[in-house]
């Protein structure tokens, strides 16, 4: 279950750009390590676990979790991790410019009977996760689906809850939470921008 500590966060040093840094590189690493151990503990190992990262930034997070799980449990990393594109299942397609479709890849022999752990960067309205649940049901019938996110910023619009949370981050809707990762942005950092903080 979630053991994410509530904000305010460590390391509130002003970032190079705009916004306030709420998680630094070390914090991100520690949060992922803790989530990895929680996944192992809750599922009593990783025998049936498949991590599916939601592009763009859920995918590198899923890969990093898989690395840690592979170290802890001594299994092959690439058998653990895949990606799940949810673009074509979104309910807000008509409200945005056309989105680019990402790749969907499921390791091994599919998701049937497995425990799927969805991995994303920020949990906000919950609509992405709803789309992801639909996308998974098109791939097969997992035994269970769990959700791991680096940041839970609140303001849910659907009855969805994360099983593993890196950090609970109470925010105002006017604010913007940006997760920067080395793989996509050159550095690991979580920043809050905008709003009257």
């Amino acid at each position: 279950m979630s053991t994410g500590t509530p904000a305010p966060a460590s390391g509130g040093a002003p970032a190079g750009g705009t916004g306030t840094t709420v998680l630094g590189a070390d914090d991100v690493g520690r949060a992922l390590t803790r989530i990895a151990h929680e996944v192992v503990e809750r599922n009593k190992g990783v025998a049936d676990v498949v991590l599916l990262g939601i592009p763009t930034r859920g995918l590198p997070l899923a890969r990093r979790l898989a690395q840690r799980l592979a170290q802890v449990e001594g299994v092959a990393e690439r058998d653990l991790v895949g990606s799940l594109d949810v673009t074509m299942h979104r309910d807000d397609l008509a409200h945005h410019p056309t989105r680019t479709i990402g790749e969907t890849y499921v390791p091994g022999d599919g998701v049937d009977g497995k425990v799927v752990v969805l991995v994303d960067d920020v949990l906000y309205s919950g609509r992405t996760i709803r789309a992801a649940l639909d996308a998974i049901s098109d791939l097969g019938r997992p035994r269970a689906v769990q959700l791991a996110v680096l940041v839970d910023r609140g303001h849910r619009e659907l009855p969805i809850r994360a099983d593993y949370v890196g950090k609970n981050l109470p925010t105002a809707t006017a604010e913007r939470v940006r997760v920067l990762l080395a793989e996509t942005d050159g550095e690991d950092r979580v920043v809050i921008e905008g709003g009257a903080r």
Partner: peptide, 20 residues
């Protein structure tokens, strides 16, 4: 998909903006 899925003419919602 590319012609029909997105619709720039409708009002843009800000929900999930962090994901765009």
């Amino acid at each position: 998909y590319l012609l029909l899925a997105g619709d720039g003419t409708r009002t843009t919602r800000t929900t999930d903006e962090t994901k765009v």
